[in-house]
C-alpha cells in the first residue's frame, strides 16, 4: 500500500488538489450565485442544487476544455516544432514522427513494448497517436459540455433579465460563448509560451521539467 502510494504520488497529489479545489469552487460558487439570485429578486439555492446546475457545469467545463486543448496542442506541436535550449523540446533535426526504429514500433518493438506498438496496421497507428487522440477527444467533449451547459446558464440569465433565450447555434456564435472560451485559451497559451522560454534560462533543481542547474542555456532536450 505504502509503495503503491509512493509510486503514484504525483498523480495522487494532483487528484487530491483537483478534488479540494473543485470542492472549494463549489462552495464559493454557491455563495456568489446566491448573491446574484437575491439581488435579482430570486431565491437562494442549496449547495446540492448549485453543483447540479448549468451555471456550475459551465464554469467547470470551460476551464477543463482549455486545459485539455493546451496539452493536446503541446503534444502535437512539439512533434514538429523545436525550441532551442528548452528541456521540453526535441533537438534540431529530430522534428517529425521519427523512424520506426527510434520509436520502437512494428518489428523494432522491444520485449516489454505494449502489444499494439508491436502490431501492424491500424492498431499501431492508433496507439502511436493515442495520447493526442485522448487529449483531443477530452478537449472536444469538455467544449461540448461547455456549450450545452453554457446555453442553459445563458438562457437562464436571459430570462432573469426579461430577455429572449437563444438556440444552441445562436449560443455557440454568441459573444458569451467565445468570451468564456478565448479568455481561457489565451491564458493557457501564455503559460505554455512562458514555460518554453523561461525553462531555457532558469532552473528548478531536481525537476524533470527543468534542465540540470549547470546545463548550458543552449542545451536542448535535457532534464534535471
Amino acid at each position: 500500500m505504502k509503495r503503491l502510494v509512493r509510486d503514484n504520488a504525483l498523480a495522487l497529489c494532483f487528484l487530491l488538489l483537483f478534488l479540494a479545489t473543485l470542492a472549494g469552487q463549489s462552495v464559493a460558487g454557491t455563495a456568489a450565485f446566491n448573491e446574484e439570485q437575491v439581488a435579482n429578486g430570486g431565491s437562494s439555492v442549496t449547495w446540492a442544487e448549485y453543483v447540479t446546475s448549468s451555471s456550475f457545469a459551465v464554469d467547470v467545463a470551460e476551464n477543463w476544455q482549455s486545459e485539455y486543448l493546451q496539452f493536446f496542442l503541446y503534444i502535437l506541436i512539439t512533434v514538429w516544432l523545436i525550441q532551442r535550449g528548452s528541456p521540453e523540446s526535441k533537438k534540431r533535426g529530430e522534428e517529425g514522427l521519427e523512424s520506426d526504429a527510434e520509436q520502437k514500433v512494428g518489428p523494432h518493438a522491444a520485449p516489454g513494448s505494449p502489444a499494439w506498438a508491436a502490431a501492424d496496421g491500424w492498431r499501431k497507428t492508433v496507439f502511436s497517436h493515442s495520447l493526442g487522440i485522448a487529449m483531443g477527444l477530452l478537449f472536444l467533449l469538455s467544449w461540448l459540455a461547455q456549450s450545452v451547459a453554457g446555453l442553459a446558464a445563458y438562457n437562464n440569465e436571459q430570462l432573469a433579465q426579461l430577455e429572449d433565450p437563444v438556440s444552441w447555434g445562436g449560443y455557440v456564435t454568441s459573444p458569451d460563448f467565445w468570451n468564456r472560451t478565448l479568455q481561457n485559451w489565451q491564458s493557457e497559451f501564455l503559460a505554455v509560451a512562458s514555460m518554453v522560454l523561461l525553462a531555457i534560462f532558469l532552473r528548478e533543481r531536481g525537476s524533470p521539467q527543468s534542465k540540470k542547474v549547470g546545463d548550458p542555456h543552449s542545451e536542448t532536450a535535457s532534464s534535471g
Binding site: A57, V60, L138
Partner: peptide
C-alpha cells in the same frame, strides 16, 4: 466529462 454533458442535458 460525460456526466457534465449529461447534467447539462438533464437540466
Amino acid at each position: 466529462c460525460l456526466a457534465l454533458v449529461a447534467t447539462a442535458l438533464i437540466t
